[in-house]
Amino acid sequence: MKSDLTVPVIGIVHSPFHEKFGIPRQPNLVQVPAIIEFNAPYDDALAFEGLGEFSHLWLIWSFHQNKADSQSPKKFRTQIRPPRLGGNQKLGVFASRSMYRPSELGLSVVKLVKVIRQNGKAKLLIRGADLLNGTPIVDIKPYIAYSDAIPEAKSGFAQAAPALLEVEWNIVASQQAQALIAQKLFDSEQQGLINELLALDPRPAYQDDANRVYGMRYRQVNVLFKISAGQVQVEAIQRIDKKEI
């Protein structure tokens, strides 16, 4: 039996997440926009005929920024610590969606907003992706509601949606956001999406320091915040120099 499988990279995701920190731990929790740009010959518009009839897609993609040695067969991780369980309880890797898995492949269902066609080529505008900017796409498949959606399915330790935190912006952060909006470097939709991301508590499960200031990068801004007693306090929002993007 063949032990290795080679698959093509058919496209790349362009998303507002330039760092892993802050990315939702599951797809569709926040309707963040992203674009999938395809490599030739997979960008041929003919390959996308009929796709616009579907509202959602399955994306098969690669965890391309894992540490190089994490996928070595000699270092196969049989167990991981899910953040949902506080980062302390161990479970088998195949009972999780951990990034440290033998195939390095991820699976996400996203909303298809539009198939963009130009000069015989196509790219996709999507929402709800939990993907880092530059993530390689291996394949896409249409989501079929009658077979893919199973209302009575059991979801183990993740049966219920995560609890949400309250998010507040202090005066300084609010003023900075308004200044960026006035300069057309930021907008109210982005601010709303940032609120939704922060409400999911992006911190590592093992960190609970009420005095620690965290930074979450989203597109061209860095959001500084603290979390205490179930509430997120946004301390500041800073523009990132274009050279860093």
Rank of each mutant, 00 (worst) to 15 (best):
D139A: 14
G134R: 00
A161M: 14
L164I: 09
I144W: 13
E152S: 14
V138Y: 06
K141A: 07
L131K: 00
P142L: 10
I140K: 11
V138R: 09
D139K: 07
A129R: 01
A153I: 06
S155M: 10
Y146Q: 10
A158K: 07
Y146H: 12
K154Y: 15
Y146L: 10
I137Y: 02
G134C: 10
N170I: 02
D148T: 04
A163M: 15
A158D: 02
S147G: 06
A160W: 08
L165T: 08
A145L: 10
N133R: 01
I140H: 14
E168F: 09
G128V: 10
P142C: 05
V138C: 14
N133M: 04
L132K: 01
I137V: 09
N170F: 02
V167F: 03
W169I: 01
L125T: 08
D130T: 00
S147V: 05
G134Q: 03
A129Y: 04
I144P: 05
L125W: 12
E168Y: 06
A153M: 07
D139Q: 11
P151A: 05
Y143M: 05
T135G: 11
A163T: 13
I144Q: 14
N133D: 15
A149I: 03
L124R: 05
E152N: 07
A129G: 10
K154R: 15
P162W: 09
T135L: 07
D139V: 02
D148I: 04
P136G: 08
D148W: 08
A145N: 09
A161W: 09
S155A: 14
Y143F: 15
N133T: 07
L164K: 15
Q159G: 02
G128Q: 12
A129K: 04
K141G: 05
N170K: 00
L125A: 15
P162V: 09
I137A: 08
L124N: 03
A145P: 08
I144M: 15
R127H: 15
I137D: 04
N133A: 06
Q159R: 11
N170H: 02
P162Y: 10
L132C: 04
A160Y: 14
G128M: 13
D139C: 06
P151K: 09
F157W: 13
W169L: 12
A163E: 15
S147Y: 03
I137C: 05
W169R: 04
I144D: 08
A161V: 07
P151H: 05
L131W: 03
E168H: 11
D130F: 00
I144V: 14
I140S: 06
V167Q: 04
D148N: 11
L164A: 06
G128Y: 12
A163L: 15
I126G: 00
I144G: 08
E166N: 13
G156P: 00
D148P: 00
E166V: 13
L125R: 06
D139M: 05
S155Q: 11
A161Q: 12
G128E: 09
I137H: 03
I144A: 14
L124V: 07
P136M: 12
R127S: 13
A153K: 11
K154G: 12
A158L: 06
V138E: 12
Y146V: 07
T135I: 09
I150K: 14
I137G: 02
A158N: 10
A149L: 06
I150N: 15
A161G: 11
